[in-house]
């Protein structure tokens, strides 16, 4: 036991046991992935082609290679996604030889005669929960792995790594299971499912540092490019067929990049010249606005917007 009281640098045998903070985060996430594989029969990994889910897939590669993933990749496609992210999604899934399932919100709208929102930024964000729940039922998924991080939002800061949802996908923050040590209780009743968040403890900066260290490729929209945008309440929204453009709108071509990639209707771009990962890391360190605050149009609605969506089955 004496060795325990020594500092690493005092003991020659321990000198190459260097393990920095990204190594810690990576190992924790791999551990969570393997717990999912060990505890569930039919998991799925939610993969959108966004940076957080790309990092998730890279962590899964580290957790399971040379074996195959014990789960398919799943994308709930709202139909409002950026083409660059969709192309990346397909190419990446095929390059690693893993199965990708895509289910479309447009099909759910047609089948279930759902009512779409109208208006300037008519978002399908709320409707995608219907498609997700249908898909969970279709494939009998018992665990859905997602790339949510606790630093993104206050309600997320309180969610467990293994978050149990009832058969309606609802989150009850007051009935969460205590999560102790590195022991994850994924036991559920039939019909329930668990949302698992392996990168809960990562921040936006951690994600970028990890992308940099591992030379992870990303869709081009994360890097500065010229794009036609309209300015709306201080945010830059890409013009597209999904956004209603009024005569009074100020439309111009600007050099922008995306800090987060969601639907074209609810994700704003940021003015930026950052052309590579190192530039982006500098920009994030210098920034004064949070990732969601800068880029999510849907969170500003109310203080509890995220909490309410999660209670309703949202990721």
């Amino acid at each position: 036991m004496a060795i325990n009281n020594l500092k690493n640098e005092d003991n020659p045998a321990l000198q190459n046991l260097r393990f920095d903070y990204l190594d810690h985060l990576e190992s924790e996430s791999i551990h969570i992935f393997r717990e999912v594989a060990g505890q569930f029969e039919r998991p799925a990994l939610l993969f959108s082609g966004g940076k957080d889910s790309i990092v998730l897939v890279h962590l899964a590669l580290k957790a399971f290679r040379p074996g195959k993933f014990p789960f398919p990749l799943l994308h709930i496609d709202t139909g409002h996604n950026f083409q660059e992210a969709l192309d990346f999604r397909d190419e990446f899934a095929s390059s690693i030889g893993e199965k990708l399932i895509v289910r479309k919100v447009a099909d759910t709208i047609k089948e279930k005669k759902l009512t779409e929102l109208k208006g300037k930024f008519a978002s399908r964000n709320a409707l995608q929960t219907f498609t997700l729940l249908d898909t969970i039922e279709e494939f009998k998924f018992d665990a859905c792995i997602g790339g949510a991080r606790r630093d993104e939002e206050k309600a997320r800061a309180k969610e467990r790594i293994f978050s149990v949802r009832d058969e309606f996908g609802q989150w009850d923050p007051k009935l969460q299971r205590p999560e102790l040590w590195n022991t994850y209780n994924g036991r559920i009743h039939k019909g329930e499912n668990v949302r698992v968040f392996p990168i809960s403890n990562w921040t936006e900066l951690d994600i970028w540092n990890y992308i940099s260290r591992n030379n992870i490729e990303l869709p081009s929209i994360y890097f500065a490019h010229e794009r036609e945008v309209l300015e709306y309440e201080g945010q830059l929204v890409a013009t597209s067929e999904f956004v209603q453009i009024d005569e009074s709108d100020k439309v111009s071509v600007k050099k922008v990049r995306y800090r987060t990639v969601g639907d074209m209707t609810c994700t704003a771009a940021v003015a930026s010249n950052a052309a590579n990962v190192e530039d982006i890391i500098k920009e994030i360190i210098a920034t004064k606005t949070s990732e969601r605050g800068e880029t999510r149009i849907d969170d500003k609605v109310s203080e509890a917007a995220m909490e309410d969506r999660k209670k309703g089955g949202y990721f």
Partner: peptide
């Protein structure tokens, strides 16, 4: 730090909340 609506309304902390910050020396 109070993330849930009930916590803000009642001015109490109900659950464990996780917060993150970095300095050049540590996360």
């Amino acid at each position: 730090t109070d993330g849930l609506r009930a916590e803000r309304e009642q001015g109490i902390t109900i659950d464990v909340a996780y917060k993150y910050f970095n300095t050049p020396k540590r996360k």
